[in-house]
Computed example of a mutant assay.
Amino acid sequence: MKIAFLVPAYNEAATIGDVLERIDALGIDRQIVVVDDGSSDDTAAIVRAYAAEHDGVLLLEKPNGGKGSALRHGIPHVDADVVVIQDADLEYDPAEVPHLVAPIESGAADVVYGSRLSGGRAQRAYLFWHMVGNRFLSLVAGVLFNTTLSDMETGYKAFRTEILKSLPLTEDAFGIEPEITGWICRRHLRIYEVPISYYGRTYAEGKNITWRDGFRAVWVLLRVRVTRAG
């Protein structure tokens, strides 16, 4: 299967080149779609230079609007069997993508979540309250949608492409994560989880998500649960 890597990027000049090289080191049939979300550093220039020397790399540029906005901007440009959301900050290692997409390639899954909380892979000891928030949001998702997802907020998700393109996504910022989860649960799709490594950043190192995004996530889950559409 051809795999598309959808990469939202905002001021990730320090890591975006490494991300691109690690994707190509997999040696798979792939497409890379990088959405530069109004970066003020050299993110776009680095991707543009890489694309000039490598086929199948598409750079999209837009004003800053948030992760959700960047993903929604890039989804229509995906042209592959499977799409993986790949953050540009190397908290998630592209080397794990074959493991992530295996349940889709075998025909068992429509969507696969890479879980940071199920154990079995290397984990940086990171922020306690961030972990608590992730577990709480996964619990809320479980109660609302009768699912057993352990890590609803994970940034590593893989989809059959037609599934991702069909979701009625509207969120601009980090609310895109619970919105995706809500819609795939509403549609009773085949969701699998696999354990992944997590190389988390601290706020000093550039992490952007805050407790305010947690409140937004709860609201988004509730909105998707009660809406009639879908």
Score class of each variant (00 low, 15 high):
Leu164Phe: 12
Gly65Leu: 11
Lys62Thr: 03
Leu26Ile: 02
Leu100Met: 10
Glu61Ser: 14
Gly206Arg: 06
Arg212Lys: 13
Ile184Arg: 11
Ala9Glu: 03
Ala122Ser: 13
Thr170Ser: 15
Ala122His: 12
Trp129Ala: 10
Glu205Ile: 07
Glu12Met: 07
Ser197Tyr: 00
Asp172Cys: 12
Trp183Phe: 15
Tyr203Ala: 09
Ser39Phe: 02
Ala4Ile: 05
Arg223Leu: 03
Val112Ile: 03
Gly206Asp: 13
Gly175Leu: 12
Pro178Arg: 15
Thr148Pro: 01
Arg135Thr: 08
Glu91Lys: 03
Ala102Thr: 04
Ala13Ser: 15
Ala80Ile: 09
Ala52Gly: 15
Asp110Thr: 08
Thr154Arg: 06
Trp219Met: 12
Val132Cys: 09
Thr170Lys: 15
Ala122Trp: 13
Arg30Pro: 00
Asn134Ile: 06
Pro63Arg: 14
Pro8Asp: 14
Thr181Trp: 03
Ala229Asp: 05
Ile184Met: 13
Asp89Leu: 07
Ala217Trp: 05
Phe5Asn: 04
Lys157Asn: 04
Ile163Val: 15
Asp89His: 09
Gly206Leu: 08
Asn64Ala: 02
Thr148Val: 03
Leu26Val: 01
Glu61Tyr: 05
Asp79Leu: 09
Pro98Glu: 00
Ser150His: 13
Thr210Met: 14
Cys185His: 12
Asp42Arg: 14
Phe159Pro: 03
Ser118Arg: 14
His54Glu: 07
Ala88Thr: 11
Trp219Glu: 13
Gly27Thr: 04
Leu189Cys: 06
Lys207Glu: 12
Lys62Arg: 15
Ala49Asn: 09
Ile180Met: 15
Ala229Val: 02
Gln123Leu: 12
Gly206Trp: 12
Arg121Thr: 11
Ala108Trp: 08
Phe145Arg: 02
Thr154Leu: 05
Val101Met: 05
Ile209Tyr: 11
Arg124Thr: 08
Thr148His: 12
Val82Lys: 00
Ile85Asp: 00
Val34Ile: 13
Gly200Thr: 05
Ile176Pro: 03
Gly206Lys: 09
Ser40Leu: 08
Gly38Pro: 04
Thr147Met: 08
Ala49Leu: 03
Thr227Cys: 10
Leu144Gln: 04
Leu71Glu: 05
Glu96Asn: 03
Gly27Leu: 04
Arg225His: 09
Leu58Ile: 13
Val112Ser: 07
Asp110Tyr: 08
Tyr199Phe: 15
Asp41Arg: 09
Ala141Gln: 06
Pro168Arg: 00
